[in-house]
């Protein structure tokens, strides 16, 4: 009788221990996602702050590119309106594309390209784009780790009970990025 009781107790303890372990690892993974997103966010903010400076520098040289410049300004202001993460990701993608076009167009302005100020800004912005990319890469890895745990048995049992949810990947819409830049000659 006592032995049966002890076995039941042992199994119950093991179950609780397993439960706590899964719960804790879910929390750990969710925190990693949050931290990783914070890193992405820092870089996105940095890019946001660099743009007025860039516009100021570029304006003096690019007289025939009003549309390209306006597209950047508009894409930037669209970010302020984005509430949740999926919307934000979309808006940021728009800014990436607009900046890409601006830099492509800048190729046809040798004076601009030679300007020390522009060169420093370009390195900063290119590097910030890289940082966004690399932070995004790491963020997506943490999201995948969390989503796997949330979806797969037996983690999904615990995840369901405590309402752990799938997180959104930060995907870049490739069509926008790869769009060929329109260069004007006038």
């Amino acid at each position: 009788m006592l032995i049966v009781l002890l076995i039941i107790l042992g199994v119950a303890l093991a179950l609780i221990g397993w439960f706590v372990g899964v719960y804790n690892s879910l929390v750990g993974l969710r925190n990693q996602v949050k931290e990783a997103w914070a890193q992405v966010d820092v870089q996105l903010k940095r890019r946001f702050d660099l743009i007025p400076n860039l516009m100021e520098t570029v304006k003096g040289y690019m007289h025939h590119e009003r549309e390209t410049l306006e597209a950047v300004t508009q894409a930037r202001s669209a970010i302020g309106g984005a509430g949740n993460i999926p919307d934000r990701i979309k808006a940021e993608g728009g800014l990436t594309a607009a900046l890409g076009r601006l830099f492509a167009v800048s190729e046809s302005y040798p004076d601009l390209k030679a300007s020390q100020n522009f060169m420093a800004l370009q390195e900063e912005l290119t590097s910030t784009e890289n940082k966004i990319g690399f932070a995004r890469q790491f963020y997506n890895q943490t999201v995948m780790n969390l989503n796997n745990k949330v979806q797969m048995f037996p983690g999904n049992i615990v995840a369901g009970m405590f309402n752990f949810q799938n997180e959104t990947f930060f995907e870049v819409t490739e069509e926008v990025e790869r769009e060929a830049p329109k260069v004007k000659f006038d």
Binding site: S127, N130, K131, F134, A135, F138
Partner: peptide
């Protein structure tokens, strides 16, 4: 050395 610094920062982010 802004370029070197940026590259190190980029890889720090990639490695988490």
């Amino acid at each position: 050395l802004p370029v070197l610094f940026n590259v190190v920062e980029e890889m720090t982010l990639a490695a988490g």
